[in-house]
């Protein structure tokens, strides 16, 4: 009886409280909640619902951009009519036209820039909550090295890009617009050259940032993924050969646990990807519509005799292109990381 009691005490002392690990993606932020589909089992279907909901909310932006388009064409037409009057002092007409276009587009450009910054911040904040979940799930599935490398890489690039956009690139976009307005109003070539330099700088940074990130992912994916796969294989072999009689069963059970962890990780990944898409799609489409309308206005104004006005509209559309690039890269960065986490080990 005493032995039994001692045995019970020892067993009790050795008991470790355990529970099933749960990997769920964090809730979508408020601004993305309206776009989230009720069911998130299938990624394709969910994404389509997110896109449809975003398109439904786009109507006011389309009419606003359409109105801006008409206003711009009216100004260009006005400038081209006034320029037909044959005097040698026509410079003032284009000068006034450029200022008018600048005043008209500055407010909408400002709100688009703010929307892009907010989206990048939201994506970055969500990534900070979501990626640790995916990294944990990946680690639970046996991908310790790859999850650490992927998580570290994504977080570093996310931080660098977020900082670069808010501290460096947004001011550059404003400078680009200011130089465009001044250059087109004055017809000064030097200002246009500086503007082109800024354009090149922003494009170069965005492109190469993404190249470096995808390059980093490929290298770490190959190296650490192969290491994790080898480690897992070795562990399974050790269990099945070292433990007599039940070794094979234990090894198979561990496989089932890994598959379960993988399924949870994929469910969290799909929800997370849909949330990322829901945060990103609405501002991206809004900026996209503005970009498209400005491109159309620029093309129509180019047909009229208002070259400086048309060039200024093109500059504003290029600035919208920068914003599309910035938000797009941030979204792609998170989506690629999530897909890499979901890909699993090996």
């Amino acid at each position: 009886m005493r032995r039994v009691l001692i045995l019970l005490v020892i067993i009790h002392a050795l008991l470790v409280p355990v529970s099933a690990m749960e990997f769920t993606a964090p809730e979508a932020p408020d601004e993305a909640q309206d776009l989230m589909p009720p069911q998130t089992e299938t990624f394709g279907e969910g994404l389509w619902k997110v896109i449809s909901a975003a398109i439904d909310k786009l109507q006011p932006q389309i009419s606003k951009s359409g109105k801006t388009c008409i206003m711009l064409i009216s100004v260009a037409l006005l400038v081209s009519i006034l320029q037909q009057i044959p005097t040698e002092k026509n410079g003032i007409v284009e000068f006034a036209g450029c200022i008018a276009v600048g005043v008209m587009l500055l407010d909408s450009a400002g709100s688009m820039i703010q929307a892009a910054v907010d989206t990048i911040n939201s994506l970055s904040e969500y990534g900070k909550m979501f990626l640790p979940v995916m990294a944990g799930a990946q680690a639970a599935q046996g991908g310790l090295a790859s999850s650490a490398a992927l998580y570290t890489g994504t977080m570093v690039f996310d931080a660098i890009l977020g900082k670069a956009v808010s501290v460096w690139m947004i001011p550059l976009v404003y400078m680009y617009l200011a130089l465009s307005v001044a250059g087109c109003a004055m017809g000064e070539d030097l200002l246009k050259r500086i503007r082109d330099l800024i354009k090149w700088l922003i494009t170069w940074c965005l492109k190469n940032g993404l190249y470096i990130f995808t390059g980093y992912l490929s290298i770490t994916g190959v190296v650490s993924g192969a290491t994790d796969a080898a480690k897992l294989k070795a562990a399974k072999l050790t269990i099945s050969s070292a433990v007599p009689v039940v070794g094979g069963i234990l090894s198979d059970a561990s496989e089932a646990v890994l598959v379960g962890a993988g399924m949870m990780k994929n469910a969290a990944g799909i929800y997370g990807m849909l949330t990322i898409a829901a945060i990103w799609i609405s501002p991206f489409l809004q900026i996209g519509i503005q970009y498209l309308m400005l491109k159309i206005s620029g093309a129509l104004c180019a047909m009229l005799d208002a070259k400086r006005v048309s060039s200024l509209i093109d500059s504003f559309s290029t600035a919208m292109g920068f914003l599309l690039g910035m938000t797009g890269i941030m979204c792609i960065l998170l989506l690629i990381s999530t897909v890499c986490f979901m890909k699993g080990v090996g």
């Binding site: 000068f95 600048g102 005043v103 500055l106 820039i113 001011p171 404003y174």
Partner: peptide, 14 residues
């Protein structure tokens, strides 16, 4: 003056 104000508004956002 309008051009200057426009520049100031744009550069003020930096």
């Amino acid at each position: 003056r309008s051009l200057l104000e426009l520049m100031q508004r744009m550069l003020g956002n930096i």
